[in-house]
Simulated assay, not measured.
Amino acid sequence: MDPEDVPEFLDNICTQHAVTFTEQDTIRQKQALPYQSKEWDNFHTHARQSIESLHEGFKDPGTEQMELSGRRRVRGFAAAQLFITILLVNYNLRKIASFLWDEEHGTTAPTNPIMRRRDRIWDNPYTKTLARESALELQRLGKLISPLRT
């Protein structure tokens, strides 16, 4: 410590050699929510899922690719920290832009999603489930858009 910063009367922390902690001093008792209560569990579950989602997005091979070791080749902790910081800023800006786009334009699920033929007529050679009627019969009944569509 700088001699100018030393107080006239030293506190116990500066003079004692041992410390005693009671149960009331533990971090478990100092939390905002009671430990392992329903509220505590809800909060920590949400927080854990949020951070895991961030990790998954950050490691995604389609964007920052931080899972690949070749993507992080730099020397020194400062260079690595700068590199990671730039990639995290890029990731966050992309997420914010996506959120703002969804807020402005809204997101709607397609009303008539395109289904594969094998799912529409229950014809799947891999699971050995065959269609009850032929594709031409389904076309005639109007249940199939095109008999040639796959």
Rank of each mutant, 00 (worst) to 15 (best):
E4R: 04
D5N: 11
D5P: 02
V6K: 11
E8L: 12
E8R: 06
F9K: 12
F9N: 05
L10Y: 04
D11R: 08
D11M: 02
D11Y: 01
D11S: 13
I13K: 10
T15C: 05
T15Y: 03
T15N: 01
H17I: 07
V19C: 06
F21V: 09
F21Q: 09
T22N: 07
T22S: 05
E23T: 07
Q24R: 04
D25L: 02
T26G: 01
R28A: 06
A32C: 06
A32Y: 07
Y35D: 07
Y35P: 01
S37N: 07
K38A: 13
W40K: 03
D41A: 13
F43L: 10
F43A: 10
H44F: 13
H44V: 07
T45G: 08
H46C: 12
R48K: 08
I51W: 07
S53D: 14
S53H: 11
E56I: 08
E56W: 09
E56H: 12
G57T: 01
G57D: 05
F58A: 15
F58K: 02
F58C: 01
K59T: 05
K59E: 12
D60F: 09
D60I: 04
P61F: 10
G62F: 10
G62S: 13
G62T: 15
E64Y: 03
G70W: 03
R72P: 00
R73S: 11
G76C: 10
F77N: 14
F77R: 15
A78T: 14
A79S: 15
A80I: 03
I84Q: 04
I84V: 14
T85G: 11
I86R: 11
L87R: 05
L87M: 05
L88R: 09
L88Y: 04
V89M: 13
Y91H: 14
Y91C: 08
R94L: 10
I96Q: 09
S98Q: 15
S98I: 09
L100I: 12
E103P: 03
E103V: 13
E103T: 12
E104F: 15
H105Q: 14
G106P: 01
G106I: 08
G106H: 05
A109V: 08
A109P: 00
N112R: 10
N112K: 14
P113G: 01
I114V: 13
I114L: 08
R116W: 08
R116D: 02
R117H: 04
R117Q: 13
R117Y: 01
R118N: 04
R118P: 00
R118M: 07
R120D: 01
R120H: 01
I121C: 03
I121P: 00
W122V: 04
D123Q: 12
N124A: 08
P125L: 09
P125H: 07
Y126W: 09
T127N: 08
K128L: 15
K128C: 03
T129K: 11
A131N: 12
A131D: 00
S134Q: 04
A135W: 03
A135S: 10
E137P: 02
Q139W: 10
R140K: 13
R140D: 03
L141P: 01
L144Q: 00
I145G: 02
I145Y: 05
R149N: 05
T150S: 00
